[in-house]
């Protein structure tokens, strides 16, 4: 059986004044139905570009230089704009960091969530009932009141719940959540994580969580892709990622997270240096300048993708299978 979602050697570059910037460099990933996939990395690693590619909504100045994104075997990036828009309404849904941007400020929640089901051909009353049910399902107790409200009249947590409900209305095959909890307080974050986790049994598709927050990944995902400088540097099941990370960057990233440090530290660990300039990526491993293990080979030759197990692989010279 082929996977629900397959990203195959995808490269995306942004046209810029001083030359092209390679935002994604040969990214491959797969997701089966029912899986929750995490994509984690720091700012500028390309995770947002990847999220945009997954929902076929790349910026106008972005070029797909190689590879494809296949949903149910169909390449979605080569589709015509109309077909892509239909795809986003039905097969692909998304949740953004700021739910305020997902809703129009001049329409009530009801107008919008009911409208999301235009293509179902149901009567308005039936659509309203479905919207009500969905809001109840995401934990909004007073669904009728919520449908009458405008987006700014809801709290941040409530809006994010409504955004989840709206995303699920079409029963999508793929749900992409870009930093779904970053704008929320810890307590709301925990509630949204709880909600997303309870929903995975409800939807028949795959969920992709894009975030910089290792805690969210740890709480929510089955498999994780770690990105650095436009590449997937490690893929692993979530337990192996946290307990047997193989790529030096993954290890450094986990070590830096204050949430992962059990005892109080006076000096927090950091990763010295900065990611490379993607307008001119280095010839060797892009992490080599910051890597404690790097040697001459790392700096001169691109690293191979080493399979450690059938579900874990790292892009590193130093990893032995």
């Amino acid at each position: 059986m082929s996977a629900l979602l397959e990203v195959d050697d995808l490269s995306v570059a942004y046209r810029a004044e001083g030359g092209d910037v390679a935002a994604l460099r040969g990214v491959s990933l797969t997701a089966q139905a029912g899986e929750v996939i995490g994509i984690v990395g720091e700012s500028g690693c390309g995770k947002s570009t990847l999220a945009a590619a997954l929902i076929a909504l790349l910026d106008a100045n972005a070029d797909v230089t190689a590879g494809e994104v296949r949903l149910n075997g169909r390449d979605i990036l080569s589709l015509h704009e109309d077909a892509r828009r239909k795809l986003r309404g039905r097969d692909i849904a998304m949740i953004f960091q700021d739910p305020m941007t997902a809703f129009s400020p001049v329409l009530t929640m009801g107008d919008q969530i009911i409208d999301f089901q235009q293509h179902t051909g149901l009567s308005r009353a039936a659509r309203r009932e479905r919207a009500r049910q969905m809001l109840l399902k995401v934990g909004i107790a007073d669904a009728d009141l919520c449908l009458r409200r405008y987006p700014h009249e809801l709290s941040g947590g409530m809006r994010q719940r409504a955004a989840v409900a709206a995303a699920l209305m079409a029963n999508p095959a793929l749900l992409v959540a870009d930093e779904p909890t970053t704008a929320l307080d810890v307590t709301m974050e925990a509630q949204i994580i709880h909600l997303l986790r309870s929903l995975r049994t409800e939807i028949n598709g795959a969920i992709v969580i894009v975030t910089h927050h290792l805690g969210v990944i740890g709480e929510l995902c089955d498999r994780v892709y770690v990105m650095y400088a436009g590449q997937v540097v490690e893929e692993a099941p979530v337990d192996d990622l946290y307990h047997a990370p193989r790529h030096p960057y993954t290890r450094a990233l986990i070590a830096c997270d204050p949430g992962a440090i059990a005892t109080r530290q006076g000096v927090l660990p950091t990763i010295p240096g900065r990611p490379p300039d993607l307008a001119a990526p280095p010839p060797g491993c892009s992490f080599a300048p910051r890597c404690p293990q790097a040697d001459a080979t790392c700096r001169s030759t691109a690293p191979p993708r080493v399979r450690v197990s059938d579900r874990q692989a790292a892009l590193c010279h130093k990893v032995v299978p």
Partner: peptide, 9 residues
């Protein structure tokens, strides 16, 4: 308790 743990276990 609400703080997400970077540890699936």
């Amino acid at each position: 308790a609400a703080e997400p743990h970077p540890d699936p276990r």
